[in-house]
Write a protein that binds this DNA or RNA. Structure first.
Lengths: 130, 130, 130, 130
DNA sequence: GTGGTCTAGACCACG
DNA sequence: GTGGTCTAGACCACA
């Protein structure tokens, strides 16, 4: 499992870790039941304070994506959406609008945005098949 | 020039202001030489702490998008690209991957994601034409 | 707003705080829009480390019960259930079974449990009316 | 004697075991003088680390509910109330208030809470009669 | 002055 | 050896 953290990045280290774990789960690189690296182990590996890892793991656990067993480690949970249908569409639309806005700000056009999504989606597809 | 700031939103008020000014410049609502509202004036208008407006204006000036002339006000500068092409690409790809991941975690499929982007993009298109 | 924390209690301090804030919201002692004490202020008041308060506030924010605005403070959010109907009933039933089991373990009978719930519910009702 | 341990559950395995032994004693499935399974035997049976079983047995012995005779095994002791009446009441009330708060936060009304308790209590009643 | 992030390091709970 | 809680204290982002 590949994790890369950049402490100079504006986005908080613990958030970077959360994002990457989510992505690994979303693409299937991490499957339910898989064990994640121990807090201290990963802290040494990526050279950040164990508390920072702990924070990310706790947040992921709160989100129901992973669960921890004291003395045993941290594991990927069975994913089960707990959100109502309305809430899911609400969040999807909000995320999409925010995403499009961000890319327009970067100077892309609407066509380019859709092209980019299509291109990256194909890459996700390939990752899933591995 | 329309400015709408939402203090409830998780993105910082000063950042919202920066984004909107950038967007106005990008879409041509604001052209080089145009005068922006004075700090205090805008603060009263949108009911925000003048420090917040000042912060946004300073950042925009640092980015070379606007400049102030003592005693005269704040003006839109001649355009020059603020980010390198590589950097723009890097950020676009990162944002896209994160966006796709988030929607996969919400339970959508890759097809649905692309459909949603297309649908919302059409809505953005209509807004631009107004 | 009354907060009482007991560091000798087995349940973590930050969890005690979460529970009490939840109760205040549930009973209406805290209403949407109300401001909570500042992190440092409350830390001094109840004599715990500010980080402990921060942790509780963060968790409550993640649960959507409160939201924070940097530089302004922490506020009670509009409550909006984000859970699906199925998930809500599932959790209700699970909580109820766990609760009944706990009280049976304490030596109460099923009649006594129902009587106790009725009695405390009446007290909640009175708190709400204030 | 039926023991079911769920390592996934957030409540510690040794605590689950304690709870179930207590419950068996409370409901009369286990009577004073009855012999409990040996540590190693039970560990194999429920697929749990023997240390965990040992920890539960030690705690139960400390609480005066069981005692071990060297070379003979572990036995249920004569019953004596382990908590003072006041302490039991205090804990019952606290658990009840927390329970009600949790269900209010889930969006249920006080009436619904009482109805739910009644419904689940009836189910507990049926289980006891078996 | 407000909340947010991170580090260093201690101690506890659990298996 | 595993994760969980808490403290002390620094520094940053924001209004």
């Amino acid at each position: 499992m590949l994790i890369h953290l950049d402490p100079t990045n504006r986005v908080p280290v613990y958030q970077q870790l959360i994002n990457q774990v989510k992505r690994h789960i979303a693409t299937g690189t991490l499957k339910p039941g898989d064990r994640l690296p121990a807090v201290r182990e990963l802290a040494l590996l990526v050279l950040v304070n164990p508390n920072t890892i702990q924070k990310a793991y706790t947040d992921l656990a709160d989100a129901g994506l992973i669960h921890s067993r004291k003395g045993q480690g941290v594991f990927v949970s069975e994913l089960r959406s707990t959100l109502s249908k309305d809430e899911r569409t609400r969040r999807s639309v909000e995320a999409t609008d925010q995403y499009i806005t961000d890319l327009l700000m970067l100077g892309l056009g609407l066509d380019e945005v859709q092209g980019l999504v299509a291109a990256r989606a194909r890459r996700f597809e390939r990752e899933e098949k591995r």
